[in-house]
């Protein structure tokens, strides 16, 4: 019973917050999800093969996106879109890290991820991990991923959510973006977070 009461209170306040966001008082141009999801937390493998934690990116505005490198179309479009937004931000872009988390650790080695993310810019960081680590992180942000059957050449597809989650300098969840948001809107919102 206490659980239900607490949950109802949280729900009610969330709904109110949601309605406030919809009423247009917010300054954001992408979707505000402050408080809707837990703070950023993970243990993954970096581009150098070392273990990294979310805390290692404390002080930066973090953009979290799931994908895999053997995806020549949508993933580079999304990363290119973010790169275009960052280019318009000038010095503020230095305070942003795009965390590209590969959910295909079988093919995406740290070395390949390094080459891949460097092609988009210095703010792009490739991360991956064990299936268990990836499941934990994707569950935390309610993102699904799955693998298609391999074809005769061993190539297979990876299905995954398209969400771009944005966390502030302290690691609190703030915004939900997607590929169809204009670069201007993305840059505007990231600048606001950098200068908070």
């Amino acid at each position: 019973m206490t659980f239900r009461c607490c949950a109802s209170l949280v729900a009610a306040s969330l709904l109110l917050a949601g309605l406030a966001a919809c009423s247009g008082s917010a300054q954001w141009r992408t979707t505000d999800i402050t408080g809707v999801m837990p703070d950023l937390a993970f243990t993954l493998t970096s581009e150098t093969g070392a273990t990294v934690h979310a805390d290692d990116f404390r002080g930066k505005v973090k953009v979290l996106f799931f994908g895999y490198t053997h995806c020549p179309d949508i993933c580079p479009i999304t990363l290119g879109h973010l790169a275009a937004a960052l280019r318009t931000m000038g010095a503020d872009a230095k305070q942003v890290r795009v965390l590209f988390v590969s959910v295909d650790p079988k093919r995406d080695t740290p070395a390949l991820l390094e080459k891949y993310t460097d092609a988009f810019g210095p703010q792009f960081v490739g991360l991956t991990g064990t299936q268990e680590q990836l499941r934990e992180l994707t569950k935390r942000y309610r993102v699904a991923y799955s693998y298609g059957p391999p074809d005769e050449n061993g190539n297979y597809l990876v299905n995954h959510g398209s969400a771009i989650f944005v966390f502030d300098r302290q690691g609190h969840v703030r915004l939900l973006m997607n590929r169809s948001d204009p670069t201007k809107a993305i840059a505007h919102d990231l600048e606001l977070l950098v200068n908070e």
Binding site: P72, K115, A119
Partner: peptide
């Protein structure tokens, strides 16, 4: 063609 590093397939 969209170039990508390494030996990744391209679009």
């Amino acid at each position: 063609i969209r170039w990508l590093p390494g030996n990744l397939p391209l679009a």
